[in-house]
Design a protein around this nucleic acid. Structure first.
Lengths: 215, 215
DNA sequence: TAGATTGTTAATCGATTAACAATC
DNA sequence: TAGATTGTTAATCGATTAACAATC
């Protein structure tokens, strides 16, 4: 059953899901890979190839049923299941993520917020009280948590990742600016914002070089 | 001079930069591609290949001078130049990014914050007053801005991108959950947080399948 | 000089695209 | 049935890795 699907394919799945959601909002019932390819600006071949990793969702001569495909991709992405999450690091970014309600719609349910800074203790964000990390081990014993969102500064993130793993966390959404050194079974998804911004900066430099006659 | 460097290489550059910065902090003066490959968990071949796209930074028999390579990569990434930025969308995420001081260290200087919500008018974030988007065209006429950070909700982001482009913005760091439809010369770097989280969710599902005997 | 390590070419691997037979 | 469009195999393209001659 397992053919080991490549990272490139997985990364495209949420984008398909987003576009299918939009098609549904626009009451589009069916779509061919050709039409979808025009909207998404990828090749029809890639769409068919990608989807077929997971099964034949389409029908020759007809195309794909939008609602059906949307549901199926949602299921593949695990959006049909509730994922309890905690945020570790209740700074600006942690609080911003806590306040972002859209995650909940997709089954990502925030169940706890933790920080190391006593000043934050007891403050409530979106109805959830900020706890101290000392309480984390006990909390994890009594509440199932699928995903830990790590929004602590770099210098505290490494040891916190260790603590999370020791206490049974299997998946970390890492916003700290370092690569976590976790056991291979732990799933880490990095969001390195500063690296994204540097990539943008690089392209800007290329653009300016080509448009201002420099070099 | 231009051999069109692939996106994969560009995306790795900031990571090299980060590791070299850490080596400098640890007073490491020189490093070989072999040693760096062990630390970064990539092949030495890839490191040499990547760096050689931009010139010969190393020396046979010696390796690479850490400080020199760090500076050079910084220059390639455009970190030796100040990039004035504005934030458009002063919600939780916009304010969190505004408060993140590390960008400034790398030359990314926040010069303005804008929103459409009058309630936010006049509130100051990190010394910068939130302005209304009506003032945006005038602001851009009088102040040079390299990068616009778009942290508005999806339904307002598309038209705001148009407005930004009309007023001369050439680069957008897009946090809105949609693909912007901008002219080809505009540089767009997307940070689709919900898609990153879905990817994590997918992997979690795979993990659970393989460990809980399901399917 | 001898040893180390780069820069660079060649080989491999994987991902994308094209093509088309199967079939709705 | 005829036309459309998928599922899937084959061809192409690009990126990664290996190898090694050049050279510090």
């Amino acid at each position: 059953m397992d053919k080991e699907i490549s990272k490139a394919v997985i990364n495209r799945l949420p984008r398909y899901y987003r576009y299918l959601g939009e098609l549904m909002e626009n009451k589009v019932e069916r779509i061919s890979s050709g039409d979808l390819s025009k909207i998404m600006r990828v090749t029809a071949s890639q769409i068919r190839q990608d989807l077929n990793h997971f099964g034949g969702f389409g029908q020759q001569g007809y195309g794909y049923n939008v609602a059906y495909l949307y549901t199926e991709i949602g299921r593949i992405l695990g959006l049909d299941v509730v994922h309890p999450m905690i945020i570790v690091g209740a700074g600006n970014l942690g609080q911003a993520l806590a306040n972002y309600g859209d995650f909940e719609k997709r089954g990502f349910k925030l169940v706890g917020i933790f920080d190391v800074n006593p000043v934050l203790a007891g403050i409530t964000v979106r109805g959830i009280e900020i706890r101290m990390v000392q309480d984390l081990p006990d909390f994890l014993k009594s509440s199932p948590v699928d995903i830990a969102i790590l929004t602590l500064p770099k210098n505290k993130a490494a040891q916190m990742a260790d603590l999370l793993v020791e206490n049974g966390i299997k998946a970390i959404w890492n916003f700290a600016h370092l690569d976590l050194d976790t056991p291979e079974y732990v799933i880490v998804e990095n969001v390195h914002l500063s690296e994204s911004l540097m990539t943008l900066s690089y392209k800007l430099g290329e653009y300016k070089k080509s448009h201002c006659g420099d070099e």
